[in-house]
C-alpha cells in the first residue's frame, strides 16, 4: 500500500473541501483498503468521513419514505426491525452479502460505491480499461464464467457485485449527493454507468462529490408483503452472487398491480428490468406469465465469454423470485438469507 495523506473530516463541507485530485473518501474501508492492498488503486490522500456526525442516521421522512445516512452500517440497517418490515428485500439482500464482520463495518455509501470483483481488475498484471483507460480488457478471451451478460462492451465485461443495490434499484431509490457544486440527487438505477467506451467512469459522481444518503421513496413500502431477494452463489454463504434478483409485487385481488424487478451481477450496474415489469402489470400471475417476464428481462442478454449459462440462470432466477414474491414475504429474514435453501412456502416450487 502506498503512503498517503490522511485527513479526518468533521463535516461534509470539510470533507468536500479536503478532497482533490488523487483523493478518495474513506468510510469503513472494507472495499477501499482491499483495493489499496492489492495495488488496484493508489490514492494520494484519504479523506476520512467516518466520524461525520449524523451521517449514519436512518430516518423516516414526513412523506413516508426513508432516508438512510451514508454511514449507516449494512448490519444496523438490515437488523432495524421497522426498516426490515417495510423493505424486506433490502434487508435480505444486505444479510446475504459478505460476512457478518464485513456487514458490521460496511456502510450504505460504501456498498453502493463498491467496485467490481472482476478478477482482471484485481490482477494488476492484466490489462484493464478501468484501471488504465485504453489498456484493453484482459478478461476478454480469458476466464469469464462470472462476467457480464447485459450491457457490456468490448472495453469492459465486468459486473457490479453489490447485493444491496439490486433491491434499491428495483425500489426506485435515490442517491443524495453533496459536492463542490452543491447538493443534487440521482436515481440509483441511473447512478452506476454501463461501460461503453469509458469503463473508468463507474458512476455519475463528479470529482469530489460525496454520497450523503440513499432515500427510498414513499411508495417503496407497498411491495413489502410480496418481496424477495434471491441470490445464486457457489457456496452456501460468504460468496458473491453468480446472479441475483430482487422482486417486489403488489397484488390486487387475483391480479398483479405493479411489479418491480432488478437483477444483480449480470451487468456493470444493478439491472432494472422495466420491460418485464410492464408485462406483469395488471396481469393474473401464472408460471407462463413469469416465464414471459423472465424472457423479457433477459431479451438483450449475450454471453461476454464462457458464461452463456448465466443467461439461462438469470432467466430462471427471475421466475423463481417472482414465484416466491407472489407466495409472500417470510415473516422473518430466513436463516440463510436469499438462498435457494431458505425454507420456502410449501408448494411454491414447480
Amino acid at each position: 500500500m502506498n503512503r498517503f495523506d490522511y485527513v479526518r473530516a468533521g463535516s461534509v463541507a470539510e470533507a468536500v473541501a479536503a478532497h482533490g485530485a488523487g483523493a478518495a473518501y474513506l468510510a469503513s474501508g472494507t472495499n477501499l483498503l482491499d483495493l489499496m492492498k492489492g495495488g488496484v488503486t493508489r490514492p494520494e490522500r484519504l479523506v476520512d468521513i467516518s466520524r461525520i456526525s449524523g451521517l449514519d442516521a436512518v430516518e423516516t421522512l414526513p412523506d413516508g419514505g426513508v432516508r438512510i445516512g451514508a454511514l449507516a452500517r449494512n448490519a444496523t440497517l438490515a437488523h432495524d426491525p421497522a426498516f426490515a418490515k417495510a423493505y424486506p428485500a433490502v434487508a435480505e439482500a444486505l444479510l446475504s452479502g459478505a460476512s457478518a464482520q464485513l456487514r458490521n463495518a460496511a456502510t450504505t455509501a460504501g456498498n453502493v460505491l463498491q467496485r467490481t470483483r472482476c478478477q482482471y481488475f484485481y490482477d494488476t498484471a492484466s490489462a484493464c480499461n478501468k484501471r488504465q483507460p485504453g489498456a484493453g480488457c484482459g478478461a476478454r478471451g480469458g476466464a469469464t464464467r462470472t462476467h457480464a451478460i447485459l450491457g457490456w462492451s468490448e472495453a469492459c465485461i465486468a459486473t457490479h457485485p453489490s447485493d444491496f443495490c439490486v433491491p434499491l434499484a428495483a425500489l426506485d431509490a435515490i442517491v443524495e449527493i453533496e459536492g463542490p457544486a452543491g447538493r443534487r440527487e440521482i436515481p440509483l438505477a441511473d447512478f452506476h454507468r454501463l461501460p461503453g467506451d469509458a469503463p473508468e467512469r463507474e458512476t455519475e459522481l463528479a470529482p469530489g462529490e460525496l454520497i450523503v444518503a440513499v432515500r427510498l421513496p414513499p411508495d417503496a413500502k407497498k411491495f413489502a408483503a410480496h418481496s424477495r431477494y434471491l441470490k445464486v452463489r457457489e457456496r452456501t454463504s460468504y460468496a458473491f452472487a453468480l446472479v441475483s434478483a430482487a422482486v417486489g409485487l403488489t397484488l390486487e385481488g387475483n391480479r398483479i398491480g405493479q411489479a418491480r424487478i432488478a437483477l444483480g451481477s449480470v451487468a456493470l450496474k444493478p439491472w432494472r428490468a422495466r420491460e418485464a415489469e410492464s408485462l406483469l402489470a395488471d396481469q393474473v400471475p401464472s408460471p407462463e406469465l413469469f416465464a414471459k417476464a423472465a424472457d423479457a428481462a433477459l431479451a438483450g442478454a449475450t454471453p461476454s465469454g464462457d458464461n452463456a449459462a448465466k443467461i439461462e440462470l438469470a432467466r430462471r432466477i427471475v421466475v423463481r423470485a417472482l414465484t416466491l414474491a407472489q407466495a409472500g414475504t417470510p415473516a422473518r429474514v430466513p436463516a440463510l438469507p436469499a438462498s435457494p435453501f431458505a425454507a420456502a412456502p410449501s408448494g411454491a416450487r414447480p
Binding site: 478478477q119 480469458g142 457456496r235 458473491f240
Partner: peptide
C-alpha cells in the same frame, strides 16, 4: 488464465473452500 499462466482467483473470496453453512 491459460494465456498468462496466472491463477485468477488467488484469494479466499473466490478460491472457495467450504464455510460453516
Amino acid at each position: 488464465d491459460t494465456r498468462s499462466g496466472r491463477v485468477m482467483n488467488p484469494n479466499l473470496a473466490e478460491y472457495h473452500v467450504p464455510v460453516n453453512a
